[in-house]
């Protein structure tokens, strides 16, 4: 659904979208990313040697999920900036809930801001971020 700058208000919700970062998806992501096959993201043994409880989802993969959440909100949306704080380790193979809310509207600059969240399905917050984006205007 195409959204326009003029129609968006503070408090408008983005998502939610559900995703699971499976072992296979993390492995594929790491291959594209250029990471060695066996690392804290793909191997439980390596992760535990480094002090993690299990293999974890790469931070930038979580960011990619959040970027996807925002850019799919509207086809012409342009994501300008995504700034996140990693609060907890994101586990493999768990249902993740991605959602956001519009928090600011800069009429002069034509920019919008949203808080975006990556939570476990039970509500435990893993990643919090701020997205800055633009939407087309209704008149030109």
């Amino acid at each position: 659904m195409e959204r326009y700058f003029e129609d968006v208000d503070l408090g408008d919700l983005i998502g939610p979208v559900e995703r699971v970062a499976t072992d296979a998806q993390v492995l594929d992501f790491c291959k594209v990313w250029g990471m060695a096959a066996s690392n804290r993201f793909t191997s439980r043994e390596v992760a535990q040697r480094e002090g993690f409880p299990d293999a974890i989802v790469p931070g930038i993969m979580g960011m990619a999920f959040l970027a996807e959440l925002v850019t799919r909100w509207s086809p012409s949306l342009e994501l300008k900036k995504l700034d996140v704080i990693f609060r907890q380790l994101v586990p493999h193979n768990r249902l993740l809930k991605l959602h956001g809310v519009v928090t600011d509207k800069d009429e002069e600059m034509g920019l919008l801001e949203a808080d975006v969240y990556l939570d476990l399905s039970d509500g435990d917050r893993m990643v919090t971020g701020k997205a800055v984006f633009s939407l087309p205007h209704r008149e030109g």
Partner: peptide, 11 residues
């Protein structure tokens, strides 16, 4: 007491 401990707007 109660406080949000907000670091982001919507909190």
């Amino acid at each position: 007491t109660g406080g949000s401990d907000a670091h982001f707007v919507s909190a």
